[in-house]
Amino acid sequence: MPGGLDISMVVQQLVNGLALGSVYALIALGYTMVYGIVRLINFAHGDIFMLGAYYGYFAITMFKIPFALALPLAMGLAAVTGMAVERLAYKPLRQAPRIASLITAIGVSLLLQNLGLKFFEARPRPYPRIIPMVVWDVGGVVVSNVQLIMLALAIALMVLISLIVYRTKIGKAMRAVSFDKDAARLMGIDADMVIGVTFALGSALAAAGGMLVGFYYNRISPTMGAMYGLKAFVAAVVGGIGIVPGAMLGGLIMGVAEVFVIAFVSSMLKDAIAFAILIVILLFKPAGLLGRAVREKV
């Protein structure tokens, strides 16, 4: 590229990529947790992310709730939505072939998106301004307070979820159910409850992602879930689906890779190159970056 590499630009792009990647990571966490526990690619997850953004939007604009309260509120509502979806659409299919729940998930995704188009209206909406933007220029690298808040919130939530999964009783139960549902049941774990909680946690994270996207980019729309959902899903797989730190790593890599391809290769071929990288990663690590290939017992 003209002018050669320039350090401030590399750093700037890294900042851009991390900001984008942190959102992917938040959404990818939901994918990965749900997959880990019921082996379902929850296609509706991207639309829960969209719903979360709208819950927050209506909380702030119609009910005048401050952001700090609207965020947990939207997360709670999304958690309830996620659990409801699980109960109504996935639970009846738990004994059915996996692919049946996958198609149901696609159906739920279409349903939520079209409900959104109808009831939230198709027009994109500007997100309410919460705090005035402050921009710092550090040696040619521009960072805004909004970016920092987003990054900090995303990291805080990821730490929180890791603590829940690895340090609490319910987290232990989640890992047990993920490992062997029947054995966990025999140990007295209420698997249905644990699955419900997993959907709730994943959905809450997606809602947080949705609100952060609204907060940072200032625009939400009923169809926003599709693109973010797809990218986050890919990120989850690249990290090793079912593995919590894998989703975070995958999300960040996805964000940074995308930005760097635009910055140093070509924005026209961005998605093609990003996907090509992913395929190559998978060819070398068939179970994702942090996934371990399971040796089949013969």
Partner: peptide, 20 residues
């Protein structure tokens, strides 16, 4: 001359190039 895809909302990478 930079591009993006449908439905995207992050243009920071492209704009960083344009700024330069």
């Amino acid at each position: 001359s930079e591009t993006y895809g449908a439905g995207e909302s992050d243009f920071s990478a492209q704009l960083t190039k344009i700024k330069k």
